[in-house]
Design a protein around this nucleic acid. Structure first.
Lengths: 123, 123
DNA sequence: ATAATATATGAACAGTTATTCATATGTTGA
DNA sequence: TCAACATATGAATAACTGTTCATATATTAT
């Protein structure tokens, strides 16, 4: 079999070369490094058990920090640190009412991701 | 104002006590520790830039390791390690064809989560 | 059987992360 | 202004994670 050498990606001659077109096509409309970074940062905010539990609390409606602390069962400081991470990732928002801060889910994407994640592990 | 002491959660007398009912109701149908753990592990698998880029590659269809390596631009070893993480999280599956292993997205939940994540950061 | 190719794996190191502790900030009522 | 409460923040530490390097396994062709 007369093998034709591929100058651009010689590797694929070895690999069979079948996917050269696919690879080239995809690499053009591939997600950018920047997008991939932000997406991974978003999921990183969802990658901790305490934060997941906080978010599932908030699915029931807005809640102040001390109530979250009560439900999740970790220290005030830990909750506060984690809420900051969630806020920075755009997953929660808050409003002040007197001495208390009421946190809530930022938008419907968050609920969707949590629901989909829960579905996925239930299989 | 005559304050009534709450024996169960004295804390909430200070916090206003408004949310005692909410907290109690939610804590019953709260996500379990086990579920929260698995959900967080799932998102942890999505929390790395390299793995996100791999998954977005695979949205275009199944692909062998060397093609992924080409598109993502990291070493073979790194791709392989990350594919293992993705496989363990149930995010990808694979089939063998000759010397090559063809990886693909495990199910529609994965595409949903990626799409929702990408939407979320685009705002 | 041997060589070449495709992929996986284990160990090690550098970088990152979650919690804890102590303390600071902001709000309310007296 | 002061005390009490609700929450945030900074530093420190222990645990975890991703990459690299070297090597192992599996498949195919000769």
């Amino acid at each position: 079999m007369e093998e034709e050498k591929c100058l651009e990606c010689p590797h694929h001659v070895e690999c069979g070369g079948k996917n050269i077109e696919l690879v080239k096509r995809l690499s053009e409309k591939m997600i950018t490094e920047e997008e991939a970074y932000y997406v991974s940062e978003l999921f990183k905010a969802l990658s901790d058990m305490t934060r997941v539990r906080i978010l599932f609390c908030l699915l029931g409606g807005e809640m102040c920090v001390c109530d979250i602390q009560e439900l999740v069962g970790v220290t005030q400081s830990a909750v506060s640190h984690q809420l900051r991470t969630l806020k920075q990732a755009g997953l929660v928002k808050y409003r002040r009412e007197g001495k208390s801060l009421y946190y809530s889910i930022a938008d419907s994407h968050v609920s969707t991701m949590l629901a989909t994640g829960l579905e996925h592990i239930s299989e």
